[in-house]
Computed example of a mutant assay.
Amino acid sequence: MAQRPTYIPQFKNKFLVKTEMVEFKYHSGFAAVQKQKSIDELHNSIQEKYGFDKILEVSSKSKEDLGVALSAFNLMIADKATKEKYSVECAFQSSKVFENGGAYTDLLKVTSKQAKKDERLRNSGKLIGFEFYNTKWQLNPLTAFYDWLYVNALNQNVQLHDRLMQYQTFTDIEFNPKKSINCQAYSIAMFVALAKRNMLESIRNPDEFLDFYKEFQISNTYQLNENLTLF
């Protein structure tokens, strides 16, 4: 058995996203079919526990084309000045600033997989922040930069919005909160909550987003330990 979170958008209370841990039967193995078996088990457990029948897995292993399209490896963000497009993953990895290097903006020009695996991200010392288009972000709040980046990228992709709004909760089978912090499924749940509250226009500016991010708290925040990574 294993546990993974499911992220439920909130439309009325102070929390934007409710995070619930769900126990399910995990099928080991790296093959897509094994991952999809685990996704089915996870979604069945969510349905039994919460009664949701519209659950979206957000990852490259999703059975839904929308879930695959929403993966940070595939979701594109456009530079409004140059009109160039690159994935959320490339934007995120290229923005990392370390004690001994970064931000490595050349990673905007490679594939998502190449960006994530670039050796400089592991050989440049401690991560100290982010820099994206001359705007610097601190590490705290922990997920603020990733959430801002993902939410604004998704806001550009209006062709996905109508279908996305039909779902009640979101998962990412690859995300383990005991090992990582940033999660695309969480960011999507935040986007849905913001959209339903008509608040998307108020969070484009990084400073306004940080103010807003401090006002709206996560329902059950991540517990930090030495094994967590911002990668």
Rank of each mutant, 00 (worst) to 15 (best):
L160R: 14
D162K: 15
I188N: 04
F98L: 05
V68D: 06
Q93Y: 04
F130Y: 15
Q36F: 02
K14W: 01
N123G: 09
F98V: 12
T135N: 08
I181H: 07
V97P: 05
K113N: 11
S124W: 02
G29S: 14
S62Q: 04
V158T: 15
K54I: 03
T82S: 15
E41F: 07
S59F: 05
V88Y: 04
L224R: 12
K85M: 08
F231S: 14
L56V: 10
A144P: 07
Y222A: 11
S28H: 14
K35E: 02
Q10A: 10
L16T: 10
N227A: 12
D172K: 07
V58Q: 04
T229Y: 02
L127C: 07
T221G: 05
V192Y: 07
I173A: 10
T221E: 14
Q166Y: 06
Q47C: 03
T229G: 11
I46H: 03
E119A: 12
E201D: 15
Q114A: 13
K14R: 11
K37A: 13
G29V: 13
N13C: 06
T82L: 00
G51I: 03
E208T: 14
N44M: 01
R4M: 05
Q3Y: 12
K25N: 12
K116R: 13
E201L: 09
P141H: 10
K178A: 12
Q34M: 09
T229H: 08
Y222L: 14
Q217C: 03
V68H: 05
